[in-house]
Design a protein around this nucleic acid. Structure first.
Lengths: 307, 307
DNA sequence: CTGTTAGCGCATTCAT
DNA sequence: ATGAATGCGCTAACAG
């Protein structure tokens, strides 16, 4: 691999001039400029980005820690982030981590100068202290640092109203296990019920600790009627649908399932009604945040899509 | 951020000694060794990986270009690769690119010393020349360099036999648009038909040029009977299912859809019968290939999963 | 306008 | 066993 020395030698100018031509490029005589460009061409020279990183103290790399429980949830985010980053001349260093210690370790390894910034995406668990230095995106319990939140209350409200419009009245809520988002979802659910003067039935709200299957089995065992499920994320929705089918409950005829998590990009018609988030906008904002701008964005609102 | 100079000063030894303690770590007096470690601890010193990369001429980064048309197809690969890489102390530089020029540009930007190696994953189109230097994983037309192929003929054969076992005889094949994999799939399909003495019906094999919807509409318009679809990938399967439902064809009762591409990790019960690939093994082999080992692996075989 | 010099942070000879 | 010196490839400050 040719280095800047080779170029400067071939072009009969100093390294500094070569550097000037390739970077700032102003204040260089036409003549030596051409000589440099010719040499660059001939040697197929590309500046070594590692050396550049060392002097400039910037790597143009951004660490992205996908803290999602299931990969599917990460894909939409990843695609949007990669697009925004590469348009900005930055690179995406990917890492998966679905527990607090794993996130901590990832932060550790992405530090030490390898990245200019780190973001944590989609965590559904309490983050370790190390993550306080990162930009948090759709993480359940946002810290005090820069972050991007999702408006789950709005989503929940929308979902309920959609289900009402589909003549569903007995909506089971299968919520996030905990965190602020869970509270928001519950609040939206309650708001919706109230707005149509439906009573709040505690039995229809599934607690955090149990699995989706267990929750549904409990309802079925107790002969509690329901005609819709409002589920926090896509994966749980799939679990729920699988279980309902085993009990011969037609989906969506008998039980309609709504997924709040639309982070999975939809191709063709969506499988089920769900929220779709404006991921490109999310990515843009994320870039602004890692750019150091200290903006507080309002929670992002998604839009309804349905089969 | 503390540098090696700070440590050497605090420990009252030279930079070389510090370096020795942290790297090779042998041939150092116990005394100065402790002093260094103490200083490191106190300053919370972490060697700057960029500087290390510069001297060692190794970045421990691997570029991964996801050349898949749809993100979903990439997720399984990504997760498996990231796991294998991070276990090996390497980092994954992610890039999406779904056209030859995009791949070329990605190769360009990932070169220039940023990565030790690059791999291209899941390309369903002809790769540019630049990609010849990369390790090719599940790319339709493999080049002459190191690569990892998938045994699509085996998959196709398995799929057909599964469909036969489900009392399906009129199987529509919706193949890849072109490339070696398409030929393999067709070969497996033909083998299967032959093995149960079914005639090959040209009308049931859908050509490359048309979209899934058009292909199916054509069949329906011509009143050609079919009771199963063998589809090359998950996305097309979803498209097909959506269209079938619009024509009131019950899936899977009337028409069973089989997806050859199992790169989408399944959670819970699979949506439809499909092939699942041993992605961790794939990732292991990919690592061996970028490690420079010049091994030729046999095409990878997947296993059937069904609802 | 351009060359020289001095780092960036570290690893690695080569002496001692 | 350890320190001084050199270089990785490049940028930037400072003179000319």
């Amino acid at each position: 691999m040719a280095s800047i020395n080779d170029v400067s030698r071939l072009a009969k100018v100093s390294k500094a001039t070569v550097s000037r031509v390739l970077s700032g490029s102003r204040g260089v005589k036409e003549e030596s400029r051409d000589a440099v460009l010719r040499a660059v061409e001939k040697l197929n020279y590309k500046p070594n980005v590692i050396a550049q990183s060392l002097t400039r103290q910037r790597t143009h790399c951004v660490g992205v820690i996908c803290a999602t429980e299931h990969v599917q949830q990460a894909t939409g985010y990843l695609q949007a982030l990669e697009k925004a980053l590469s348009q900005d001349g930055k690179h995406l260093l990917l890492r998966f981590a679905n527990s607090a210690p794993a996130v901590a370790q990832a932060m550790e390894e992405l530090g030490a100068g390898r990245c200019d910034a780190v973001m944590v995406v989609g965590a559904r668990f309490a983050l370790p202290d190390e993550a306080k230095q990162a930009v948090l995106i759709d993480c359940l319990d946002g810290g005090d640092g820069p972050q991007l939140a999702i408006d789950y209350q709005f989503a929940s409200l929308t979902a309920c109203h959609y289900l009402f419009s589909q003549q569903r009245r007995k909506i089971v809520l299968i919520n996030f296990s905990r965190g602020e988002a869970a509270e928001q979802v519950l609040a939206g659910y309650c708001d919706a019920l109230e707005s149509v003067a439906l009573p709040y039935n505690r039995q229809l709200v599934c607690g955090s600790e149990e699995s989706v299957s267990v929750a549904l089995q409990t309802l079925i065992n107790r002969h509690i009627a329901f005609d819709a499920l409002l589920v926090s994320d896509y994966i749980k929705s799939r679990e729920a649908i699988a279980l309902l089918r085993r009990f011969q409950r037609q989906v969506p005829q008998e039980v309609m399932v709504f997924s709040l998590d639309g982070a999975v990009p939809v191709v063709g018609a969506p499988e089920m009604p769900q929220m779709a988030w404006p991921l490109d906008m999310l990515a843009q904002r994320a870039l602004q945040l890692i750019g150091g701008e200290n903006i507080a964005f309002p929670p992002l609102r998604g839009s309804l899509i349905a089969p």
